[in-house]
């Protein structure tokens, strides 16, 4: 097989790879976390509003503060996870991990597998309820050296981890990763 042929074959393989979205239930995790954050902000603002209810000198009319927090919080809980989910995509390709994400700031990242120092699969309390895991890929890069893929079914995350591990272990080049 000549070089150009193998080149063509590889790019075909790359083309054939679809970009995967995260597991759909990750939206619920984001909603729950967003709701928690909203509640955390809402309680103090409600407290402020109630304690200044009969204060004529108050520079904010009653309910403005907690109302703003509530509206922003609702948007953050309901609409934001959907947008975030739609923006997220990843693909484990023959030689690289590809991710794209971000609602406001769009970020496209290619991490060559041979640059990966180690891989973790982590799970927090809420993620455990949904049987989802989070893939954390560490590189020796100088900036944003960790690449995180949230909301993968745990089994899938572990399979990706093992695949990356296999790639690194079977690397015929015995050079330092950096």
């Amino acid at each position: 097989m000549t070089d150009s042929q193998s080149e063509a074959a590889r790019s075909e393989v790359v083309e054939a790879d679809t970009i995967h979205s995260l597991d759909a239930s990750v939206r619920n995790i984001w909603r729950i976390k967003g709701a928690g954050l909203t509640l955390l902000l809402l309680l103090p603002s409600l407290f402020y509003d109630l304690t200044h209810l009969f204060d004529p000198g108050s520079w904010l009319p009653f309910g403005v503060l907690s109302g703003t927090v509530l509206v922003l919080g609702l948007i953050y809980c309901l609409a934001w996870p959907r947008l975030r989910y739609r923006a997220w995509g990843f693909a484990l390709r023959p030689e690289e991990l590809y991710t794209e994400h971000g609602v406001l700031n769009h970020i496209r990242t290619v991490v060559p597998l041979r640059r990966i120092q180690h891989v973790d699969v982590s799970q927090d309390l809420i993620e455990r309820e949904f049987a989802l895991g989070r893939l954390v890929v560490h590189t020796a890069g100088s900036r944003s050296s960790d690449v995180v893929v949230p909301g993968l079914p745990l089994g899938e995350a572990e399979r990706i981890r093992d695949e990356v591990k296999r790639f690194i272990l079977e690397d015929p080049l015995t050079e330092d990763p950096v």
Binding site: I107, T109, V110, T139, G141, S142
Partner: peptide, 27 residues
């Protein structure tokens, strides 16, 4: 090391992107 193409919301409005090729090392 790793390859990033990023666009902030303002950059997206103007059709721009930032290309960053990361290398190993300290911040």
């Amino acid at each position: 090391h790793a390859f990033h193409a990023t666009a902030t919301i303002f950059q997206r409005r103007l059709g721009l992107k930032t290309l960053h090729v990361d290398t190993a090392g300290a911040a």
